[in-house]
Protein backbone atom coordinates (compact mmCIF):
# COMPACT_ATOMS: atom_id res chain seq x y z
CA UNK A 1 0.00 0.00 0.00
CA UNK A 2 1.21 3.40 -0.77
CA UNK A 3 2.07 5.68 2.01
CA UNK A 4 -0.68 8.14 2.82
CA UNK A 5 -3.35 6.30 0.88
CA UNK A 6 -6.78 6.15 2.41
CA UNK A 7 -8.26 2.77 3.29
CA UNK A 8 -9.92 1.57 0.09
CA UNK A 9 -13.67 1.60 0.09
CA UNK A 10 -13.88 -1.87 -1.49
CA UNK A 11 -15.44 -4.35 0.85
CA UNK A 12 -12.98 -6.98 -0.22
CA UNK A 13 -9.89 -5.03 0.41
CA UNK A 14 -7.39 -6.75 2.60
CA UNK A 15 -6.54 -3.44 4.16
CA UNK A 16 -7.93 -4.43 7.54
CA UNK A 17 -9.26 -7.58 9.18
CA UNK A 18 -12.95 -6.55 8.98
CA UNK A 19 -12.75 -6.18 5.18
CA UNK A 20 -11.01 -9.56 4.97
CA UNK A 21 -13.89 -11.19 6.84
CA UNK A 22 -16.46 -9.65 4.52
CA UNK A 23 -14.59 -11.02 1.52
CA UNK A 24 -14.70 -14.49 3.01
CA UNK A 25 -18.42 -14.12 3.64
CA UNK A 26 -18.98 -13.16 0.00
CA UNK A 27 -17.01 -16.19 -1.14
CA UNK A 28 -19.05 -18.41 1.13
CA UNK A 29 -22.26 -16.86 -0.17
CA UNK A 30 -21.17 -17.52 -3.73
CA UNK A 31 -20.41 -21.16 -2.99
CA UNK A 32 -23.75 -21.62 -1.21
CA UNK A 33 -25.62 -19.97 -4.11
CA UNK A 34 -23.81 -22.22 -6.57
CA UNK A 35 -24.71 -25.34 -4.58
CA UNK A 36 -28.31 -24.12 -4.38
CA UNK A 37 -28.52 -23.67 -8.13
CA UNK A 38 -27.02 -27.11 -8.72
CA UNK A 39 -29.48 -28.72 -6.31
CA UNK A 40 -32.42 -26.98 -7.98
CA UNK A 41 -31.16 -28.04 -11.43
CA UNK A 42 -30.73 -31.62 -10.19
CA UNK A 43 -34.30 -31.82 -8.89
CA UNK A 44 -35.58 -30.21 -12.06
CA UNK A 45 -33.97 -32.88 -14.22
CA UNK A 46 -35.05 -35.69 -11.95
CA UNK A 47 -38.67 -34.74 -11.53
CA UNK A 48 -39.85 -33.33 -14.83
CA UNK A 49 -39.88 -34.35 -18.44
CA UNK A 50 -40.62 -31.44 -20.67
CA UNK A 51 -41.85 -32.42 -24.10
CA UNK A 52 -40.76 -29.76 -26.45
CA UNK A 53 -42.25 -28.96 -29.82
CA UNK A 54 -38.79 -27.94 -30.96
CA UNK A 55 -38.07 -31.20 -32.74
CA UNK A 56 -38.84 -31.38 -36.45
CA UNK A 57 -40.32 -34.84 -35.91
CA UNK A 58 -43.27 -33.24 -34.13
CA UNK A 59 -44.26 -31.72 -37.47
CA UNK A 60 -44.26 -35.20 -39.03
CA UNK A 61 -46.46 -36.46 -36.19
CA UNK A 62 -48.91 -33.61 -36.79
CA UNK A 63 -49.00 -34.25 -40.55
CA UNK A 64 -49.58 -37.95 -39.98
CA UNK A 65 -52.37 -37.15 -37.54
CA UNK A 66 -54.01 -34.93 -40.16
CA UNK A 67 -53.85 -37.85 -42.60
CA UNK A 68 -55.23 -40.37 -40.12
CA UNK A 69 -58.04 -38.03 -39.15
CA UNK A 70 -58.94 -37.47 -42.80
CA UNK A 71 -59.00 -41.22 -43.51
CA UNK A 72 -61.06 -41.93 -40.38
CA UNK A 73 -63.56 -39.23 -41.30
CA UNK A 74 -63.93 -40.55 -44.83
CA UNK A 75 -64.18 -44.20 -43.82
CA UNK A 76 -67.83 -44.99 -43.25
CA UNK A 77 -68.99 -48.38 -44.52
CA UNK A 78 -72.61 -47.72 -43.51
CA UNK A 79 -72.93 -44.51 -45.50
CA UNK A 80 -74.30 -44.20 -49.04
CA UNK A 81 -72.32 -41.02 -49.68
CA UNK A 82 -70.15 -41.07 -52.78
CA UNK A 83 -67.09 -39.63 -51.07
CA UNK A 84 -66.51 -42.37 -48.48
CA UNK A 85 -63.43 -44.52 -48.89
CA UNK A 86 -65.52 -47.68 -49.19
CA UNK A 87 -67.91 -46.41 -51.88
CA UNK A 88 -65.22 -44.59 -53.86
CA UNK A 89 -62.90 -47.58 -53.93
CA UNK A 90 -65.73 -50.02 -54.67
CA UNK A 91 -66.55 -48.03 -57.84
CA UNK A 92 -62.93 -47.64 -58.87
CA UNK A 93 -61.78 -48.96 -62.23
CA UNK A 94 -59.56 -47.79 -65.07
CA UNK A 95 -62.12 -45.24 -66.27
CA UNK A 96 -63.63 -44.02 -63.00
CA UNK A 97 -61.74 -41.41 -61.03
CA UNK A 98 -62.86 -40.82 -57.40
CA UNK A 99 -63.36 -37.07 -57.82
CA UNK A 100 -65.69 -36.69 -54.84
CA UNK A 101 -63.30 -38.48 -52.51
CA UNK A 102 -60.41 -36.29 -53.65
CA UNK A 103 -62.52 -33.14 -53.29
CA UNK A 104 -63.38 -34.13 -49.73
CA UNK A 105 -59.72 -34.81 -49.00
CA UNK A 106 -58.85 -31.36 -50.35
CA UNK A 107 -61.45 -29.85 -48.03
CA UNK A 108 -60.40 -31.78 -44.93
CA UNK A 109 -56.64 -31.41 -45.24
CA UNK A 110 -54.95 -28.06 -44.48
CA UNK A 111 -53.98 -25.90 -47.43
CA UNK A 112 -50.26 -26.30 -46.80
CA UNK A 113 -50.39 -30.07 -47.33
CA UNK A 114 -50.22 -31.91 -50.62
CA UNK A 115 -50.91 -35.61 -51.00
CA UNK A 116 -50.92 -38.73 -53.11
CA UNK A 117 -53.49 -41.44 -52.63
CA UNK A 118 -52.88 -45.09 -53.43
CA UNK A 119 -54.37 -48.46 -52.62
CA UNK A 120 -52.32 -51.49 -51.63
CA UNK A 121 -54.04 -54.83 -52.29
CA UNK A 122 -53.35 -58.51 -52.23
CA UNK A 123 -53.79 -60.34 -55.52
CA UNK A 124 -55.21 -63.59 -54.28
CA UNK A 125 -54.62 -65.53 -57.49
CA UNK A 126 -50.94 -64.61 -57.84
CA UNK A 127 -50.28 -64.38 -54.08
CA UNK A 128 -48.60 -61.03 -54.60
CA UNK A 129 -49.28 -57.56 -53.31
CA UNK A 130 -49.85 -54.67 -55.68
CA UNK A 131 -50.18 -50.90 -55.55
CA UNK A 132 -52.93 -49.04 -57.39
CA UNK A 133 -52.08 -45.32 -57.54
CA UNK A 134 -55.05 -42.95 -57.66
CA UNK A 135 -53.09 -39.71 -57.81
CA UNK A 136 -49.56 -39.47 -59.08
CA UNK A 137 -48.09 -36.10 -58.12
CA UNK A 138 -44.35 -35.72 -57.82
CA UNK A 139 -43.47 -35.69 -54.15
CA UNK A 140 -40.36 -34.65 -52.19
CA UNK A 141 -38.30 -37.34 -50.43
CA UNK A 142 -39.54 -36.44 -46.93
CA UNK A 143 -43.14 -37.56 -46.92
CA UNK A 144 -45.35 -38.94 -44.18
CA UNK A 145 -47.77 -41.79 -44.83
CA UNK A 146 -51.06 -42.37 -43.07
CA UNK A 147 -52.69 -45.74 -43.72
CA UNK A 148 -56.03 -47.33 -43.08
CA UNK A 149 -57.11 -50.90 -43.65
CA UNK A 150 -60.59 -51.28 -45.08
CA UNK A 151 -62.47 -54.47 -45.91
CA UNK A 152 -64.94 -54.69 -48.78
CA UNK A 153 -66.87 -57.64 -50.06
CA UNK A 154 -66.29 -58.81 -53.61
CA UNK A 155 -69.91 -58.12 -54.54
CA UNK A 156 -69.50 -54.46 -53.67
CA UNK A 157 -66.75 -53.98 -56.27
CA UNK A 158 -67.58 -53.04 -59.85
CA UNK A 159 -67.06 -55.83 -62.36
CA UNK A 160 -63.79 -54.49 -63.81
CA UNK A 161 -62.34 -53.43 -60.47
CA UNK A 162 -58.58 -54.04 -60.11
CA UNK A 163 -59.26 -55.60 -56.70
CA UNK A 164 -61.87 -58.11 -57.85
CA UNK A 165 -61.44 -61.73 -56.75
CA UNK A 166 -62.12 -64.07 -59.70
CA UNK A 167 -64.95 -66.54 -59.56
CA UNK A 168 -62.70 -69.53 -60.18
CA UNK A 169 -60.84 -68.85 -56.91
CA UNK A 170 -63.98 -68.72 -54.79
CA UNK A 171 -65.29 -71.84 -56.56
CA UNK A 172 -62.29 -73.75 -55.24
CA UNK A 173 -63.17 -72.58 -51.75
CA UNK A 174 -66.87 -73.34 -52.37
CA UNK A 175 -68.00 -70.02 -51.00
CA UNK A 176 -70.10 -67.19 -52.40
CA UNK A 177 -68.02 -65.00 -54.70
CA UNK A 178 -69.95 -61.86 -53.84
CA UNK A 179 -69.41 -62.31 -50.10
CA UNK A 180 -65.68 -62.95 -50.38
CA UNK A 181 -63.65 -60.42 -48.30
CA UNK A 182 -61.24 -58.04 -50.03
CA UNK A 183 -58.73 -56.37 -47.70
CA UNK A 184 -57.30 -53.09 -48.96
CA UNK A 185 -54.88 -50.63 -47.47
CA UNK A 186 -55.54 -46.97 -48.27
CA UNK A 187 -52.32 -44.98 -48.23
CA UNK A 188 -52.39 -41.23 -47.94
CA UNK A 189 -48.90 -39.89 -48.61
CA UNK A 190 -48.53 -36.36 -47.31
CA UNK A 191 -45.97 -33.61 -47.55
CA UNK A 192 -45.75 -29.91 -46.85
CA UNK A 193 -45.75 -27.37 -49.63
Amino acid sequence: MWEGDLVPSSSLSCGNSRSKDRGQAFTLEGVIAGVLILVVAYFLFQSTLIVSPLSGDIVDVQIRQYGLDALNILSNPQSDANDTLENSIAKLNSSVYPTELLNSLDTILPDNLEYNLEIAYFNITTNQTGIYPITNKSNPPDTVTATKIIVLRNGQLVSDSPFKVPVNYTDIESVSNSEFPVVLEVRLILWRI
Binding site: F122, I124, T129, V151, P181, V183
Partner: peptide, 13 residues
Protein backbone atom coordinates in the same frame (compact mmCIF):
# COMPACT_ATOMS: atom_id res chain seq x y z
CA UNK B 1 -63.53 -70.11 -44.47
CA UNK B 2 -64.16 -66.38 -44.77
CA UNK B 3 -62.23 -65.74 -41.56
CA UNK B 4 -59.28 -67.73 -42.92
CA UNK B 5 -59.27 -65.76 -46.18
CA UNK B 6 -59.62 -62.48 -44.30
CA UNK B 7 -56.76 -63.44 -42.01
CA UNK B 8 -54.56 -64.40 -44.96
CA UNK B 9 -55.02 -61.04 -46.65
CA UNK B 10 -54.58 -59.09 -43.40
CA UNK B 11 -51.33 -60.91 -42.67
CA UNK B 12 -50.04 -60.02 -46.14
CA UNK B 13 -51.06 -56.36 -45.81
Amino acid sequence: TYVRELDKQITMM
